[in-house]
C-alpha cells in the first residue's frame, strides 16, 4: 500500500503494509528516531506526536490514518537546530534523567504552551497524565513546563 505522510513539513512516501503503525512509519520509513516506543498499547506516551496540532499516541494509529494530516514529531519542534521554549526549559532545569521520555514531554509541553490559558502547576500536572517518566517523579518536568509557559507570557 502506497502511503504518503507529511512529517515536519516534509513529504515521505513509501510502499508499506496496510497494518503499518504510524510510529513505525515515523521511525523506520522517515527515519526520525526521536519518537520512541515504550509500550505499543497507549500506556506511556513515548510515541507522542502532534497530528494537525493535537497530541496523539502514534502507536495507537495506523500510518494510513494520518494521510493528509500534518504530523509534527519531536525533531520538528527544534527548528534549525534550536530547541523550543519547552525543550530549553526541560534541558536547563535538568528535568530529565535517561531522556527516553523527551519526545513525549516536549510534544505535550509544546501543546500546553500553545493551547492552555491556564498553565499553573496543577493544570500542567493533569495535562501530562498520559505520558510516563519512570525516572524523575514528574515534579522537575512539571516545573520546567510551568516555567517555560511563564517566560513565554513575559515575552
Amino acid at each position: 500500500m502506497r502511503i504518503r505522510l507529511n512529517i515536519n513539513g516534509k513529504d515521505y512516501e513509501s510502499d508499506v503494509e496496510p497494518r503499518t503503525l504510524l510510529v513505525d512509519f515515523i521511525r523506520d520509513v522517515a527515519g526520525l528516531k526521536g519518537t520512541h516506543i515504550g509500550c505499543e498499547t497507549g500506556s506511556c506516551g513515548a510515541c507522542m506526536v502532534l497530528l494537525d496540532g493535537k497530541p496523539v499516541k502514534s502507536c495507537l494509529m495506523l500510518a494510513a490514518q494520518a494521510e493528509g494530516k500534518k504530523i509534527v514529531t519531536v525533531e520538528g519542534l527544534s527548528e534549525g537546530g534550536k530547541l523550543n521554549a519547552v525543550q530549553k526549559s526541560l534541558s536547563q532545569k535538568k528535568a530529565l534523567q535517561c531522556g527516553f521520555c523527551a519526545a513525549g514531554f516536549s510534544i505535550m509541553g509544546t501543546w500546553i504552551l500553545e493551547n492552555e490559558q491556564d498553565t499553573d502547576y496543577e493544570r500542567v500536572k493533569s495535562d501530562l497524565a498520559g505520558v510516563v517518566c519512570r525516572c524523575s517523579g514528574y515534579e522537575p518536568i512539571i516545573n520546567a513546563i510551568v516555567e517555560a509557559a511563564k517566560n513565554e507570557r513575559k515575552d
Partner: peptide, 19 residues
C-alpha cells in the same frame, strides 16, 4: 546545558532500537 539531553530533543539519541 547538557548536550546529552539536547540530542534527545533533536532526535539524535542512539538507543538500541534506533540502530
Amino acid at each position: 546545558m547538557s548536550e546529552r539531553t539536547e540530542k534527545f530533543f533533536m532526535g539524535k539519541g542512539s538507543f538500541v532500537d534506533d540502530i
